[in-house]
Design a protein around this nucleic acid. Structure first.
Lengths: 288, 288
DNA sequence: CCTGGAATGGAATGTCTGCCTCATTTTTTA
DNA sequence: TAAAAAATGAGGCAGACATTCCATTCCAGG
């Protein structure tokens, strides 16, 4: 009993990723019905893991025998061995994101020592990132970037808890050679600084509850001068929202009374780099 | 055809969590062999999902018929329906952390528009958090917190990219009523400020490659005064590490040339709140 | 110590499984 | 266009499967 060389030389994919890559590589060269199964398999891996050859074949619209031929073509000795790979994928895949977070939170609440505190902040940051990734509105992002990209100078306005974000935005804008002005409260010259802003400029204002009165006041004053504002805040009732042309609602999780900044940071970076890219593109177009 | 009332009234657990709870509730009242299976099922849910009645029974050390009786006792009409619940659990559990990150990264690389940039930063932040969660040394954390908790004044030293973290630490320490001094470069009075520090104080210094020369220089000068330093940096070759009593290696992922700050932030928060807690505890002990 | 009923073990059963084979169709090659 | 090769469909078969049934064991109550 001897298998032909081609079959023997072929390494049988033992893990899902390899299998996936193999299938995608050969996609073009596969017979019609086999390709049909290949597509179905990659689209519904869970069905392959749990179904029977007959049920899978039916839902892929082919004969069971074709399914077996598909498996054999990949180097498996039958459908069952192929199925093992799909099952292993479910079995070995890490605990879900939620389970991981739950574990972290459990450690943070029940755990002793300072490691628990650390875990709590990591969990809060992860949760925040997860939330914003789900809820961020693409259109708002585009609008905000367009608005900021047109500005001559970008003013960055934030106090207290939000100030670290503002300082990072200022740093990043500087690195991208985008003219910007961080409005700090240090020297008490904010009113004068704000006075320089014109409708050709733009503002990134960041404030979360409890809103720093100074931030609100400055935002009002600068919006009355006709300067468009992009706001990052935490609810639609935020006083910042009413002054803003575009505003983002960012819900940050908190731990030990300190809210995370990770989601706000990610958004801030996206805005900054987005503006940088947009300016480069526009610049190129103008030159051309 | 009529089922007896007891069976009819009993709601069949349709999801894994309900099933789990039900089993744990009845644990005491279950016959020996059935309990044996119950324990095995909750300990090896994946095996129940994939195995056959015979294989599961064997690995639990019972007869297949007992397995079926177990399922029926829970209100299922057979082993197969019970198995569905275990399979559903695997099917519905969210895609793994890695898959989620890969998807984000894929979108960030392949995707168009500014959403891709945002996804990239979220992915970088998640990766960083994940990494630090794995690699952070609990002992270092304890050491650093002890060191900082004893300090009369905590000096916070960071420039450029790390400055946002420093400003957040300063903000948080302030909220916790812990005396601290942020060393900014603004007024050029850093040397004088540093001169005030004594060995009874402590420093949190943050710097990543390319290390801001000023930060290094100030760290050196302050350590020569005998002030202990807790450093957050990115490699053991960092010039900061040599001056530090305790140092943390934080590997931040980057996107579009900007490194994430999320891991550093989480660590910074943990240090800050950890010091706050330690001080409260010590205060209580002293009073008592 | 007996006894009735529940719990358990193990073999019997009928269904369904994966896989093979072979006839038929489609595609490729000459 | 004819012949050869590959791909496909469909039925059949051996084995594995979940389940049932019945004999045996265990255990509480008298």
């Amino acid at each position: 009993m001897s298998l032909d060389r081609a079959t023997m030389d072929e390494r049988v994919p033992r893990d899902f990723e390899t299998l996936r890559t193999t299938i995608l590589e050969r996609r073009e060269s596969l017979p019609k019905r086999i390709a049909q199964i290949a597509a179905h398999a990659l689209d519904n891996p869970d069905d392959i893991a749990f179904g029977t050859a007959a049920s899978i074949a039916a839902s892929a619209g082919v004969q069971p025998s074709t399914l077996i031929r598909f498996a054999q073509q990949l180097g498996f000795d039958g459908f069952t061995s192929l199925q093992q790979v799909f099952r292993e994928r479910l079995r070995e895949r890490n605990s879900s994101y939620d389970e991981r977070l739950q574990a972290l939170r459990a450690k943070a609440e029940g755990g002793a020592g300072h490691r628990a505190i650390f875990d709590g902040f990591v969990a809060a940051a992860s949760t925040s990132l997860n939330d914003i990734s789900r809820t961020l509105d693409d259109a708002h992002l585009e609008d905000a970037i367009s608005l900021l990209a047109k500005a001559e100078t970008i003013y960055v306005l934030a106090k207290r808890r939000s100030y670290p974000v503002a300082s990072y935005i200022a740093y990043a804008l500087g690195k991208l050679k985008i003219r910007n002005q961080l409005i700090e409260s240090a020297a008490g010259l904010n009113a004068e600084m704000i006075g320089f802003a014109t409708p050709a400029d733009a503002v990134i204002a960041i404030s979360f509850s409890p809103y720093a009165p100074a931030t609100i006041e400055e935002a009002r004053s600068i919006s009355e001068q006709g300067v468009p504002i992009v706001a990052i805040t935490d609810s639609s009732f935020s006083p910042l929202a009413q002054f803003a042309k575009v505003w983002f609602e960012v819900a940050e999780a908190d731990f030990a009374g300190f809210r995370s900044l990770s989601a706000t940071m990610a958004l801030a970076m996206a805005l900054t780099v987005g503006v940088g890219e947009k300016r480069r593109d526009t610049g190129r177009k103008r030159k051309a």
